[in-house]
Amino acid sequence: MDANSNKTSTSPSAAPLVSIVCPAYNQEAYVAQTLEGFLMQQTTFAFEILVNDDASTDGTARIIADYAKRFPTLIRPFYHETNQYSQNNPPVPRLFGEARGRYIAYCEGDDYWTDPRKLQIQVDFLENNPDYVLTYHDAIPFDISGQYPIQLQGKLRGDATALELQKARPISTLTTVFRNVFDSLPPELRAAPLNDLVWWSLLGAYGKGKFMGEVKPAMYRLHPGGVFSMRSNKRKLHMALQTSGALANYYNRLGNQELYEHFLMELVEYSLSAITPKRKMQTLLAVGQNFSTNISKRLMTSLSKGHVQ
């Protein structure tokens, strides 16, 4: 962790099979419900809870400290004196590096789980299926007005191939349990704002993803303090654009042409979505002219090579 962080020295008496990772910031009203969702888990194996307070200015750190005092063999709290997210230095995935478990379960401090068998079901599957790297299930968005339809629809409520994961397929982040295979990001990906999409892409190098419909949906809270959910559509689009660009750079360095071109195409699509209709037409005309010019050059080169006097 950074120089301004500090953690407890206590750790679970038994080596945990699962590490629950929970970043929190200014979630005084919600974090207790999140922690209770962890503590209610019924498992045949040991697990630990790593909860990180990113220099909250409300009572979040106090609530975390109270739970850590009550459950010292389960909860490992981390506290920052300076907010790391605002300095483009988010505590995750570095917090993954602190995890002792073979598997990581992820849930932020304003969301919560509803199924006490969640961890057991997802971990049992991963233990018995080494070709899978990630499991996930449904999540229901909600706010003070009530609940909304499940977060992911259609084909996204199904399994993912390794390639689909590498292409950063959307997944309900608060529902995931995955193998603990990385604790840092490649340099191209460290500034990508949609870091969960980056995680899925990296995990795809290790296996497939399994959708588990038998697990009760988790609850995804929409509120003004949400890091992503309450951003403007314009800001969300810009975050997606930046993330696709970062992934394109990463796969270009690896020499993976298929994934490089996939994220370049996403970059183009997001860029077109971000500009005004007038600019969009100008851009498409310019692309068409550029395409015609390049095709003409290639044809002339081919003809001159094949012509014999």
Rank of each mutant, 00 (worst) to 15 (best):
K280I: 00
S271K: 11
F142S: 05
V215S: 03
I144L: 12
N294L: 13
F47Q: 06
V287W: 15
K297W: 13
Q84V: 00
N233P: 08
Q87Y: 06
P170M: 01
L299P: 07
S229N: 15
V21G: 03
G37L: 03
N6L: 06
E261H: 14
G109D: 04
L50S: 03
S9L: 12
L267P: 02
W199P: 00
T8G: 12
K280M: 10
K69L: 05
E48C: 03
G225V: 05
V215R: 08
G245Q: 14
A68P: 09
A274K: 03
I144G: 04
T57W: 10
Q120N: 08
L152W: 13
Y85C: 00
V92P: 00
G207L: 02
K236S: 01
N195C: 01
V227P: 02
Y132P: 07
T301P: 03
V308P: 05
H137M: 01
G109Q: 05
Y106H: 09
M300D: 12
A205E: 15
L17Y: 12
D196I: 01
I150Q: 09
D66T: 11
M40F: 14
G146W: 13
D53I: 02
M300E: 14
N233L: 06
A274D: 10
D138H: 13
E164Y: 12
G154F: 07
N195Q: 11
E98M: 08
I150L: 11
L254H: 09
P193Q: 01
Q122A: 13
L259I: 04
E36L: 06
S292M: 11
P23W: 12
T10K: 14
G158I: 04
T276Q: 10
G209R: 03
I104F: 10
N180R: 08
L50M: 11
Y250R: 05
A246L: 04
V308K: 15
S13M: 09
V177T: 11
E127P: 09
S86P: 00
A191D: 11
P193M: 00
L267M: 13
Y103T: 03
P187M: 01
N6C: 03
Y103N: 02
S5Q: 12
E214K: 14
G204L: 00
P72M: 00
D111E: 10
D110K: 09
W200S: 00
H137D: 05
P217C: 01
P16F: 08
N83K: 14
T43P: 07
F47Y: 15
M239A: 10
N88P: 01
Y25E: 03
D183F: 11
P72T: 01
L35A: 04
G209K: 02
G245H: 08
G207Y: 07
Y79R: 03
G288T: 07
S304R: 15
Y67H: 11
T135C: 14
Q41C: 02
